[in-house]
């Protein structure tokens, strides 16, 4: 454990040195994702100017939803996105060799070697959106609620990580994982705009169980507004555990199958 923390620190230090070399793109991810979530806010402001509620959720809850999705996405962008997204290329080019021969977990190194401090403002922006959402709903928030919300955000960030790794593990088994990434992008785009509360029937099965992007921001928001039932909590816990297990198995299976360059 102590060794892993030392490795993570070293990776972050190296990344900072690298980013200082290419300063122009430093805040790029923040500006791109920031604009995306501002657009979401504008869209739902327009929708709520015409309707009072979407299902059981008012404008405040929807702002909380957008803020929470933005927060999970921001943590993803700051910590592991750029590292994980390079997996398919590293498999294809044989660069994964360099990770397998080092005395540290390859996945740990991949997850932390390309942290992006330029996305930290995105975390702050998400917190502002969440604060605005809380103000809009007019709720009184206690310490217990905040802790429970943070617990769910943490757990859903893990689920987000699992999904990201899983989608890229496909590159160990197929020539190209581009279509899986396209599928991931399409699901994220959809679930970024739609809370899990609007899914029903087969759509609920797909987006809450098979490709569980639909629960990622919904569960934390439900816990914050006091709508999280034991059933919802249990479902979220089971889904996260199952997907973490599948991700571990896929990663291990993929590494075993990896044949160096042109795998």
């Amino acid at each position: 454990m102590r060794k892993n923390i030392r490795v993570i620190k070293a990776l972050i230090r190296l990344r900072f040195q690298n980013l200082m070399t290419f300063r122009i793109g430093f805040f790029g991810p923040f500006l791109v994702d920031g604009s995306l979530f501002v657009v979401q806010l504008m869209i739902f402001s327009a929708v709520y100017a015409n309707v009072e509620r979407i299902g059981s959720w008012g404008h405040g809850q929807m702002i909380l939803y957008i803020g929470t999705f933005s927060l999970i996405n921001a943590v993803n962008m700051v910590v592991y996105f750029f590292g994980i997204s390079s997996i398919p290329w590293k498999v294809k080019s044989g660069e994964m060799d360099l990770y397998l021969t080092k005395p540290v977990s390859p996945l740990l190194r991949l997850s932390f070697e390309r942290v992006n401090p330029g996305s930290i403002p995105l975390v702050l922006m998400s917190l502002v959106i969440i604060a605005y959402g809380v103000h809009k709903t007019g709720m009184e928030i206690g310490a217990g609620t905040v802790l429970s919300y943070l617990f769910w955000v943490g757990l859903m960030t893990l689920l987000y990580y699992d999904m990201e790794v899983m989608m890229r593990c496909v590159s160990f088994f197929l020539v190209s994982s581009a279509k899986m990434e396209q599928l991931e992008e399409a699901c994220l785009e959809l679930c970024m705009q739609l809370p899990g509360t609007v899914f029903y029937g087969v759509y609920k099965l797909i987006f809450c169980c098979v490709l569980p992007y639909g629960i990622m921001a919904t569960v934390p928001v439900k816990s914050l507004v006091g709508e999280c039932t034991p059933g919802t909590a249990l479902h979220a816990l089971i889904v996260t555990c199952v997907f973490t297990g599948i991700t571990c198995a896929l990663w291990k299976g993929g590494i075993r199958r990896y044949n160096s360059a042109s795998s």
Partner: peptide, 24 residues
């Protein structure tokens, strides 16, 4: 993938139009 936008519209507006006859 053209279904993404249609699915978004279908799910979102299905819920909204369950409460209202017309919107804008």
């Amino acid at each position: 993938f053209t279904v993404g936008r249609i699915l978004f519209a279908f799910l979102l507006w299905r819920v909204i139009f369950a409460q209202k006859e017309t919107v804008a």
